Amino acid sequence: MGPTRRRDVTAGAAVVAVVSYLALGLLYRWFPPITVWTGISLLVVAIAEAAWGRYVRSKIEDGEIGAGPGWLHPLAVARTVVVAKASAWMGALVLGFWLGVVGYLLRQRSTLQVAAEDTGGAVVAAACALALLVAALWLENCCKSPQDSGRSGPLNGNQPG
C-alpha cells in the first residue's frame, strides 16, 4: 500500500463537484437549511487527526515504536495509516460535494433568497472538508518510518529493555 496521491484525491473531488453541481438543480428544493454549523464536525475530526499525527510523529522520532510501556504499538501506526487514507478520501469526496453546492448557490444567489442564505454555511462546510483532507494527508505522512538509520529502538530491530 502506497501513500495517497494528491492527484487521485483531487480528481475524485473534481468529479464529485461536477456531479453534485448538476444534481443540485433537481434536488436543492429538498435540502434543509445549510448553516455555519453544518460542516463543523469535519473540522473536529480534522483537529483530532492533526493532534494524533503530532503524537505519532513524536513517538516515531523518539524511536518509541514497539511493544513496551509508553511506546506506540506498530499495529496502532498501521491502523492510523488506514484511518488517514480513509479520511483523506472522505475529505476529498465531501469537499467535492460542498464545492458543487457552493458553485450552485453562487449561481442562484441573485434569484433565490434561500441560496444566498445557504452560501455561507456551504463555504464553511467546504473549508472544513478541506481541513479534513489536509489533516488526513498530514497524518498519513506522520506515519512514515524515519530515514535516519542511526536511531535506536525497535524500528531498527532493538527491543525495549
Rank of each mutant, 00 (worst) to 15 (best):
Q147S: 15
F97L: 14
P33Q: 10
A115M: 04
W71E: 13
E117G: 00
A17L: 04
F31M: 13
Q159W: 07
R107F: 09
T10V: 07
W52M: 12
C142A: 15
A86N: 11
A136W: 02
P154Q: 09
R57T: 05
G39F: 00
V124I: 04
W37H: 13
V18S: 10
A51W: 08
A131P: 03
V9K: 01
Q108D: 07
A125C: 06
V44F: 08
S58V: 04
A48H: 09
V19K: 10
S152G: 13
R107D: 14
E49N: 12
L106I: 04
S20T: 15
P146E: 05
R79L: 15
A125K: 00
S149A: 12
L43Q: 09
S145L: 15
T119R: 11
A17Y: 05
C143G: 00
S110W: 13
P160I: 13
A48S: 11
S152E: 14
S20H: 11
S145P: 05
G39D: 03
A122W: 02
T35N: 08
C143D: 02
R6N: 05
L132E: 05
A135H: 01
D8L: 05
A23H: 07
S20A: 14
D8P: 00
A48T: 10
A122F: 03
V81N: 09
L27E: 09
I40Y: 10
V44K: 09
A86Q: 07
P74S: 05
Y21V: 01
G53C: 03
G68F: 05
E49M: 15
A127Q: 06
P3N: 13
G91D: 08
R7G: 01
A67D: 15
L22M: 10
V114W: 12
D118S: 06
P69Y: 06
W52Y: 15
P74Q: 07
A23T: 07
E64K: 15
T119H: 14
W138Q: 08
G68E: 08
W30T: 11
R109M: 10
I60T: 06
Y28I: 08
R5I: 00
P32L: 10
C143E: 04
E117S: 09
G150D: 13
G25Y: 12
R29L: 06
R109T: 09
V124S: 01
S41Q: 11
S145D: 13
P69V: 12
T10R: 13
C142F: 02
A76F: 10
A51T: 13
A88S: 12
W89K: 09
K59D: 07
K59V: 05
L139C: 04
S20D: 12
A92E: 08
A17P: 04
C128W: 01
Q108G: 00
G91A: 08
L24H: 08
I65S: 04
A13Y: 00
A11P: 00
I47C: 08
K59C: 10
W71P: 00
L42I: 00
W89M: 10
P3I: 12
G70K: 02
N158I: 14
Q113C: 01
G63Y: 05
H73T: 01
V82E: 14
I47N: 02
L43K: 07
L112T: 07
G157T: 00
S58W: 12
L42E: 10
G25T: 06
T80A: 14
L75G: 08
W30E: 07
